[in-house]
Design a protein around this nucleic acid. Structure first.
Lengths: 163, 163
DNA sequence: ACCAAAAATTTTGTCATCAAACTATCTTGC
DNA sequence: GCAAGATAGTTTGATGACAAAATTTTTGGT
């Protein structure tokens, strides 16, 4: 299966004029564009989630749990890429609202595993619907370049993270 | 010179294996990859800046000012894409450290313009050196796809921002 | 001249993030 | 079996972000 995967091309169309002034010092800086695009994307998602009176931070955790139920906070932290201490408050919020349950690990008193409740599963589904809508919007904007874009972004993560 | 600008291709190489587990639900989600990549990039920059005992948040403001001296906080807010209220604390910090000066607008008592001091200019240069090093690292990772990548990211910003 | 509306900035409140310090528990070496 | 070190989770403190409300000043209409 040599070269099995197609090689998507990125058409570098003429940059659209935006209503926002970009300082010359940033115009050619990847980090800047990366940041601005991510913030725009997150903001759009966040707004949609807010309208449903939910918290955007819940989505990733509930979704990871719906896939890998029973992770410990530390494992969860590794999977979702947040510091352990960041999760403490979110997990507390989710527990208070009855979306997760903590179950003591009988072999290690320090540790517990986190499980979704039925309520948590329902909430995950609601958030997932919003997320999918947002994704489709992004997909439409990016178009055929999606796979290539994801590959580059993953390369950035791996290179900066491990190299 | 038809087709004067080359059309960079994105080689979608086989995704490198990373040491981090990516949940299946996120594997194909642009927003997720965008976020993770941006965080990796910012983290790398932040670490470098920290080593020099500086604040990453200063860089964008000082750089914008070095290009457009004398902006008001509101204008600055628009250019750097942050909420006006976010700038208050940073500007205060920069003023305390003598990197900027506030100059009352004689025609409008509510408003003032922000100017770099010599100290601020020196600080901007130091931060800029760090930023350039970081940029070069990103450029190396992204390679020939840079222009195409920036174009897509800008498209995301414009579409989500105005659409 | 006055009063209402708009505008520029700051203040306040909430949230997410990391790093460092802390507590409790487990594991290991001796 | 015990002390030293590692690990799990939480707490605390700093940063930086937004939104909403408050403040001050300007502008506009009558």
């Amino acid at each position: 299966m040599a070269k099995s995967s197609a090689k998507p091309k990125l058409e570098a169309s003429r940059p659209e004029e935006s209503d926002v002034l970009i300082p010359a010092a940033f115009r050619n800086v990847l980090g800047y564009h990366l940041r601005v695009a991510q913030e725009a994307s997150f903001q759009a998602f966040s707004t949609a989630v807010d309208k449903a009176d939910l918290k955007p931070g819940w989505y990733s955790i509930l979704t990871i749990l719906s896939e890998y139920d029973g992770l410990t906070p530390s494992e969860l932290s590794r999977v979702c890429g947040r510091d352990r201490s960041t999760l403490t408050a979110t997990l507390k919020g989710l527990a208070i609202r009855g979306m997760i349950e903590r179950q003591q690990n009988p072999d290690d008193q320090r540790s517990y595993s986190v499980r979704l409740t039925d309520e948590g599963r329902r909430m995950q589904a609601r958030l997932h619907a919003i997320a999918r809508k947002h994704d489709r919007r992004l997909d439409e904007i990016v178009g055929e370049d999606k796979a290539a874009l994801i590959a580059i972004l993953a390369r950035i993560v791996n290179s900066l993270g491990n190299g």
